[in-house]
C-alpha cells in the first residue's frame, strides 16, 4: 500500500536524526508527565473532583492523551499544512495523480509522538485495573470506541486547521485553542468546567461525545446505552471537516494562494 511506502520513507528520514528523535520523544513524555503530576497533586489535596475518583480521572486523561498523540502522529501533515502551502509544496501535490488529502496525510508522520503515546500506555496500564471497573465486553467496546472516536475528532480539528490555510496563513494559532485546548481540557471529565463548557464541547466541537458521556457509562455512573454509542456520533464530525476542506481547496484552485 502506498501509505506504507510513505511510512517507510518517513521512518528512514527520521532515523537520520536519531538524537533529535529521542530528545523530542523524551520532551513529549516529560510534558505529558507534568500534566499527570498536576492531576496527582490535585488528588493529594482533594479526594474527589466532582465525584470522580483519582483512577477514574486518570482513565479519562489516558483516553484523551492516547487519542491526541495518535492523531498527532498520523495527522501531523495537516498540522504543518500552512508551511506546505507557503513553500509551494502543495502545488507539487496537485500535479501528482493522487487525492490531495491523502498526500497531505502522508506528507508527515511524526514518530517522536511515541513519547506521549508511551505515557498514555503507562497510565492505561495503571488505571485500567486500578479503576475498579469490571471489564465486561461492553466496557471494553466502549473504551475502544472512545479511543477511535477521539482520534477521529482530533483529526477533524487538524483538518479544519489546515483548511484555514487555504484562505490565510496568518494568525492560525487561534485554532490551537481547539486542538491543544481540547487536549488540555480533556484531562478531566468535561462536566467539571460547568454547564457552558460542556455544552460547547458537545454541540460545537464534539470532544465530550468521546470523552464525557461514554466515560459516564464506562465508570458505571450511567447505564444509558446511548452513551456507549455516542462516540460513533462524534465520528460524524469528520464530515463537516471534510466539506470545509473541499471548500478551501476550491478557493485555492481559483486564487492560487
Amino acid at each position: 500500500m502506498l501509505y506504507g511506502k510513505y511510512f517507510s520513507i518517513h521512518l528512514k528520514s527520521q532515523m537520520q536524526y536519531k538524537t533529535s528523535f529521542f530528545l523530542t520523544a523524551l520532551g513529549q513524555f516529560l510534558t505529558s508527565f507534568s500534566v499527570y503530576l498536576s492531576i496527582y497533586f490535585m488528588f493529594e489535596r482533594f479526594n474527589r473532583v466532582e465525584g470522580f475518583t483519582y483512577t477514574e480521572v486518570l482513565l479519562c486523561f489516558a483516553v484523551v492523551l492516547m487519542a491526541f498523540s495518535l492523531a498527532e502522529c498520523f495527522f501531523r501533515g495537516f498540522d504543518t499544512f500552512p508551511t506546505i502551502i507557503s513553500n509551494g509544496e502543495f502545488d507539487r501535490m496537485m500535479v501528482r495523480p493522487r487525492s490531495v488529502i491523502f498526500q497531505v496525510l502522508a506528507s508527515k508522520i511524526e514518530f517522536s509522538r511515541i513519547g506521549r503515546l508511551l505515557q498514555a500506555i503507562i497510565v492505561f496500564a495503571y488505571a485500567i485495573p486500578a479503576s475498579g471497573i469490571s471489564w465486561t465486553y461492553d466496557k471494553i467496546v466502549t473504551l475502544l470506541l472512545m479511543l477511535i472516536s477521539g482520534i477521529t475528532v482530533f483529526s477533524g480539528l487538524f483538518i479544519i486547521y489546515a483548511s484555514f490555510a487555504f484562505f490565510t496563513i496568518e494568525g492560525l494559532e487561534f485554532m490551537n485553542i481547539f486542538t491543544d485546548g481540547g487536549r488540555e481540557f480533556g484531562r478531566y471529565p468535561l462536566s467539571i468546567y460547568g454547564e457552558g463548557v460542556l455544552k460547547f464541547f458537545t454541540y460545537v466541537i464534539p470532544t465530550a461525545l468521546f470523552q464525557y458521556y461514554p466515560f459516564l457509562y464506562l465508570i458505571g455512573r450511567s447505564d444509558n446505552l446511548l452513551y456507549m454509542f455516542l462516540p460513533l456520533v462524534g465520528m460524524l464530525f469528520l464530515i463537516p471537516c471534510y466539506c470545509f476542506w473541499r471548500f478551501g481547496l476550491r478557493h485555492y484552485k481559483s486564487t492560487g494562494s
Binding site: I9, S13, Q16, Y17, G88
Partner: peptide, 14 residues
C-alpha cells in the same frame, strides 16, 4: 511531468 526549478520534489533525507 513538471519541474519547478526552485522547489524540490525529492524527499530530502533519503
Amino acid at each position: 511531468g513538471v519541474v519547478f526549478g526552485q522547489r524540490s520534489q525529492l524527499w530530502w533525507d533519503v
